[in-house]
Write a protein that binds this DNA or RNA. Sequence first.
DNA 1: CATGAATGAGGCTTCATTCAT
DNA 2: TATGAATGAAGCCTCATTCAT
Lengths: 187, 187, 187, 187
Amino acid sequence: MRLQTINKLKQAGLKLFAKKGLAATNIKEIAREAQVSLGLIYHYYPSKEDLYLSLANEAMEKSQGVADQLNRLESSIRDKICLFIDAFLHGVQKEDGIYYFIIISQSFETGKRDEDQQLLEKKLQSIRNLAALVQQGQERGECAEGDPFQLASTFISATQGIASFKLMFGEQFTLPDKEILIRILLK
Amino acid sequence: MRLQTINKLKQAGLKLFAKKGLAATNIKEIAREAQVSLGLIYHYYPSKEDLYLSLANEAMEKSQGVADQLNRLESSIRDKICLFIDAFLHGVQKEDGIYYFIIISQSFETGKRDEDQQLLEKKLQSIRNLAALVQQGQERGECAEGDPFQLASTFISATQGIASFKLMFGEQFTLPDKEILIRILLK
Amino acid sequence: MRLQTINKLKQAGLKLFAKKGLAATNIKEIAREAQVSLGLIYHYYPSKEDLYLSLANEAMEKSQGVADQLNRLESSIRDKICLFIDAFLHGVQKEDGIYYFIIISQSFETGKRDEDQQLLEKKLQSIRNLAALVQQGQERGECAEGDPFQLASTFISATQGIASFKLMFGEQFTLPDKEILIRILLK
Amino acid sequence: MRLQTINKLKQAGLKLFAKKGLAATNIKEIAREAQVSLGLIYHYYPSKEDLYLSLANEAMEKSQGVADQLNRLESSIRDKICLFIDAFLHGVQKEDGIYYFIIISQSFETGKRDEDQQLLEKKLQSIRNLAALVQQGQERGECAEGDPFQLASTFISATQGIASFKLMFGEQFTLPDKEILIRILLK
DNA sequence: CATGAATGAGGCTTCATTCAT
DNA sequence: TATGAATGAAGCCTCATTCAT
């Protein structure tokens, strides 16, 4: 039924878009991967770009959801950041998880100006959110010195690059230990 | 004459491939950007993929060249790493520089198995080279604790992500201060 | 039930085929306009072309029916032609009426050779019928001079063109007074 | 070279669009008829619709050109109208001529609102122009009685219908004598 | 060396039709 | 009867590449 088909499509799109990017992924391939006929995609998504945007937005929402959850916790900044890193290291080892990270880090434009712009804005916002957390941490003496936005973006950069390497090299690539990532943000 | 045309083509290809990726960049656009006729491209490169590979390899070589130079210096590991970071932060602010960084970080496959594989291997090697440096640094007590390969890949990840953000957001994005990057690798 | 659905389908098909032609009208649109599900259409018509042909034939029959009725009247040729013109001017002002006129004037081919050919033959026959009437009129001195077939086809041409303009321009277009049309055929 | 190719495309498009309409004519067919490769069409026209619009506009311009020429003549209204009818009857017997007439009479929409609207407006204007001529003729006592716009539209309707029949039936259809058409507009 | 017209395979999308429910 | 999800052939269009000039 509807939901099952949509899930198969999302699954297939996520995997292929993450691995090859928007332009290099073709609709036929998505259909094959989803085990669905070519035309069916267009019952659910008006275009390849719409499927991509839907996945990219979903990825951002998931990421934002995790961040929100952490922020609601009654714990030290250090603990929040540790949990965030745990979530990242855990997520990047699951098939879907890594695809979501990669989709977020991609900068492929769909040609839909408004929606591309919105995605970009959300990315920036998520860095700002982490920066705010870092600033709090600095005030409490838990975080490393330096401009909070710079610290946050360096950290996010590192996670994106790591996800990218993990996808590129697979088993050949060992994820960094938690401590290495912690050191970027915390004293 | 020859050289000038080739340069214009490289310039244009570099910019467009970096901004849009291999699949989304088309030859006509490259010709227009290079102010060169469409057919002329094929006097110098057998295919779009060859132009891309040529640029990607050149980017890797440039990067390797910088690393080699640093390694040949008679200075402390700390100084080498500082110089490396300087080179990165400086490079990423120049138009061409950032394009080279982005091209390196991309994982676009051209369909030429051997050459794609070679590129991947070079990327891995450059992480290993940095890891070796880090290991030396650790032996001398200059570098941070942790698995050298993990430290190196986290650092490289961070630089790639930063280059990517810089290209995405342009002036809206402030590069991190040197100290923030230094802290990933050094005590 | 059956009949109601068929009527809704005919209504919708008539409107859309008249406005956009056979090829540019799609089944989904017909279903929507008829407020009927997509699949249901295929319970009543084997294909889009069959619905079209059914409507085109019905239109021809209606037109032929009016002509037959007039012919059966015991009145002067002049009166018959006047009544014919009345019927046209009246019909073209009703929504369905104009669609039927337009369908008749269209020359869309459905790919079903035989049936396309039959439709064409019927069109020709209806001109010949009017021509016969004109010839009678000329013998009685009521009709204008000239080849009866030419007079008839010119008249029919005019009515088709008028119906077409009416559909195109709607309220912006004023139908011609009866006298103008009368003058084509009658003295 | 360019011009020759463009002419072949126009020729082919004109013929096919006239015979089958916009939606039922496919690009591959146009390419075959023009003896040109499929892709080449897109060097000269951005889309099928653009080719169609270009032909439709050209047809309107040709028609307008003839009308303008006649208007510039220093002759009686009667003579102008006679010449107009001559031009029509002559044009409709040439292959291209009839295609142009048919294209003008078609009401296919391309989906480009503005341009569709402009075409419609031009059609209306050409009726108004003829109506103005008729009004002059009435003032001079040369034209038939009745609302000039209605007379003009009836006349134009007749010519369109005649062109349509001619294309439909070919040799089976005899064009009306000049006198029959003259009688619609002139006393 | 240089141009850009020409080609056609392949990609995205539509849509008539079928079929399980 | 009735629905609309599913199919896939066919249409439009793009674009890497070739080639005559």
